[in-house]
Lab assay of single mutants.
Amino acid sequence: MQIFVKTATGKTITLEVEPSDTIENVKAKIQDKEGIPPDQQRLAFAGKQLEDGRTLSDYNIQKESTLHLALR
């Protein structure tokens, strides 16, 4: 499925993911596309910060959802 990640600079990244993917996997995909190390990424959805060990389906993130990326 496709999801979107909006960066602090307003850029939107499109990612191909599975509901079973962990947040860690998603951060690795962002690193592949943007070169941002996962340990510098903070992802949020619906106002909640997402934890590495959880999956997209844990957070009820569905196709075409938009996550927000902040850098630490």
Rank of each mutant, 00 (worst) to 15 (best):
I23C: 03
F45W: 07
F4T: 07
K63A: 12
T7C: 04
Q41L: 04
Y59I: 02
R54V: 12
F45V: 04
K6F: 10
S65C: 04
R42L: 14
K27I: 02
L56Y: 01
N60Y: 08
K29Y: 10
F4W: 06
Q41G: 03
S65Q: 08
R54A: 12
F4H: 12
T7R: 10
S57E: 08
A44M: 09
L43M: 03
A8T: 15
I61C: 02
T12P: 05
L69C: 03
L67P: 01
L43A: 01
L15P: 00
L71F: 09
S57Y: 09
Q41R: 02
G10H: 12
P38I: 13
E18R: 12
Q31M: 10
V26A: 02
D32Q: 10
V5R: 00
V5K: 00
L56Q: 00
G53T: 09
D21T: 12
K63P: 15
K63T: 13
T12F: 14
D39A: 12
I13Q: 02
Q40C: 05
K29W: 05
N60I: 04
L67H: 01
K63C: 05
V26S: 01
N60V: 05
M1E: 02
S57F: 13
P37G: 05
T9E: 15
L71N: 11
L71M: 09
K63I: 07
T14S: 13
T66S: 05
E18W: 15
E34D: 06
H68N: 06
G47S: 06
I30G: 00
S65M: 07
P19W: 07
N60P: 03
G53E: 14
I61A: 02
A46W: 12
F45P: 00
P19G: 07
Q2R: 13
H68R: 06
L43I: 07
K48A: 14
I13G: 01
G35T: 04
N60L: 06
R42W: 07
S57W: 10
L50R: 00
D21C: 04
S20L: 07
P37Y: 05
A28S: 09
T22I: 08
G10N: 14
G10F: 05
P37D: 15
L67G: 01
F4L: 06
Q49E: 15
V26M: 04
T22K: 11
S65F: 08
K48W: 08
D58G: 04
T14N: 08
G47H: 08
I36L: 06
H68K: 05
K63H: 13
I13P: 00
E24R: 15
P37V: 07
A28W: 12
G35F: 06
T55N: 06
Q62Y: 10
D39E: 14
Q49Y: 07
D32M: 10
V5I: 13
S57P: 03
L50T: 02
F45L: 06
N25M: 15
K33H: 10
K27L: 03
L15N: 00
F4R: 06
Q31L: 10
Q2L: 15
E51Q: 12
K33W: 07
K29H: 09
I23S: 02
D39Q: 11
L56E: 00
N60T: 05
D21E: 13
T55W: 04
M1A: 03
G10K: 06
G10M: 07
Q62C: 04
E34K: 05
S65D: 14
T66K: 05
I61G: 00
Q41I: 10
I23W: 02
